[in-house]
């Protein structure tokens, strides 16, 4: 089972990384949401596989949470928001697709270089897995920086969370307390995000975060 365990774990983590790249160059918001849902499904498969390999039944809960909440509920809610607010047009990008992809490649290389000198640890989470998780986190950050729209920023943030849970599930025997709390905080994050998105919409008639820039800095007039 040894090599199969690693091969499948790498396949799934690699799949998540590819989906992270797909997230970077989508130019329609609905497509971004769908790709994110796929990434969450890949995450839940990966966590489920870790639970079999590590014989850690509590990880199944994490996998189910990832599948139900991030794979279905949140994408569904986001689709609704997009439809309600009538914003299913293009994604506004601060930096074009080509340079973003190149930066993404550089970030993946950086993740590999950072993790490479680490001595092979005894646990199931090998340095390759760690490199995958780090790369997904960095790409999520990149997405948050290059996208102006509030909905795509939420997705960037959640794809960072995907990378975090990938790393946490690979860390052998990491207590469930922490995983539940992560799931919990993601839920809180969603509520907060939801509230904020609606309010931003209410006040500015747009979910484009750059509209907020008008209010930046000190209050000059008034």
């Amino acid at each position: 089972m040894g090599t199969l365990a690693f091969d499948l774990a790498h396949l799934l983590a690699g799949g998540m990384l590819v989906l992270s790249f797909l997230l970077l160059y989508q130019d329609r918001i609905t497509a971004v949401i769908n790709v994110f849902a796929w990434q969450a499904i890949a995450l839940s498969l990966s966590v489920a596989w870790q639970s079999i390999v590590q014989e850690a039944p509590h990880l199944v809960a994490t996998a189910v949470i990832a599948l139900v909440v991030k794979g279905f509920l949140i994408p569904f809610a986001l689709h609704r928001i997009v439809r309600r607010l009538d914003i299913h047009r293009e994604v506004e990008q601060v930096i074009g697709g080509g340079p973003t992809m190149l930066t993404g490649l550089a970030l993946v290389a950086l993740a590999i270089l950072l993790v490479q000198p680490v001595r092979e640890a005894g646990g199931t989470l090998t340095r390759e897995d760690l490199a995958f998780a780090l790369a997904i986190i960095l790409l999520g950050l990149l997405m948050m920086i290059t996208r102006r729209n509030a909905v795509t920023q939420i997705i960037g943030f959640m794809s960072i969370e995907n990378g975090l849970i990938l790393a946490a599930s690979g860390a052998k025997g990491m207590p469930l307390v922490v995983e539940v709390s992560v799931a919990f905080s993601v839920l809180i994050a969603l509520i907060v995000f939801g509230v904020f998105v609606f309010r931003i919409r209410e006040r500015f008639d747009t979910v484009d975060v750059s509209a907020l820039d008008r209010f930046r800095g000190e209050r000059r007039e008034r």
């Binding site: 640890a121 998780a133 975090l164 790393a167």
Partner: peptide, 13 residues
Amino acid sequence: FFGTILVYLVAQD
């Protein structure tokens, strides 16, 4: 949180 996971990783060894 990623840093916390890494600390756990080195510690569990």
